[in-house]
């Protein structure tokens, strides 16, 4: 009944790892999931959108990694306080909604003076906000100095649901993203 040494060693190894696994099962078992994807039903009110938008800005959207609200001084990215006031008048022919939407969908098309490009396309991975999430973000941005008017029925320019408008050409040029040079040309042209 002599047990061979390798077998004994194997049993010891299995017993030791088994014991540690057992210890591992005794502690509280928590699974931490990435920030939840907000389920956005089609009947959300404007206030809901604002709330969700704020959550996205600080969570999934990572907006506050760079942007600030209510800060001044040497900033790397534009401060968002009062952005709703400026949004309607910054680019000729752009209303508030279009401006905000463009800034979110195609951040490199128009760069606020004094800043340089660098914002990732948040509608694309790794951040990858959905159209509805961007809708919520816009709703929140509208409250910064203004009144949120966004609803679930509002057609957001540049989103998948938007009909081909006067701006779709610009958006396509940016969308394929193959040549940065052409983007710059667009910026020049648009400015």
């Amino acid at each position: 009944m002599q047990i061979p040494v390798p077998l004994k060693v194997a049993i010891l190894t299995i017993a030791a790892t088994g014991f540690y696994t057992y210890v591992g099962q005794l502690v509280p078992q928590k699974e931490v999931h990435p920030p939840e994807v907000v389920e956005m039903s089609s009947d959300l009110s404007t206030a809901d959108l604002v709330e969700i938008g704020e959550g996205i800005m600080s969570g999934k959207g990572l907006c506050f990694t760079c942007h600030t609200v209510g800060k001044s001084g040497a900033l790397r990215f534009p401060d968002l306080d009062g952005v709703a006031i400026r949004a309607g008048s910054r680019r000729p022919g752009y209303d508030e909604l279009t401006y905000l939407a463009e800034s979110l969908y195609h951040p490199d098309v128009f760069i606020v003076e004094g800043f340089s490009a660098g914002m990732p396309q948040i509608s694309k991975p790794p951040i990858g906000l959905t159209d509805d999430e961007i809708r919520a973000v816009i709703a929140y941005l509208q409250t910064l100095g203004g009144q949120a008017t966004m609803t679930m029925d509002t057609v957001v320019p540049f989103s998948a649901a938007a009909p081909d408008g006067p701006l779709s050409a610009a958006s396509e040029a940016v969308d394929d993203g193959t040549a940065t040079g052409s983007d710059e040309a667009e910026v020049e042209g648009a400015a």
């Binding site: 600080s58 506050f64 990694t65 609200v69 209510g70 800060k71 910064l144």
Partner: peptide
């Protein structure tokens, strides 16, 4: 804690 905190619309 989170990296940033927005209280009364100030981050």
């Amino acid at each position: 804690p989170p990296a940033t905190l927005t209280v009364h619309e100030v981050t």
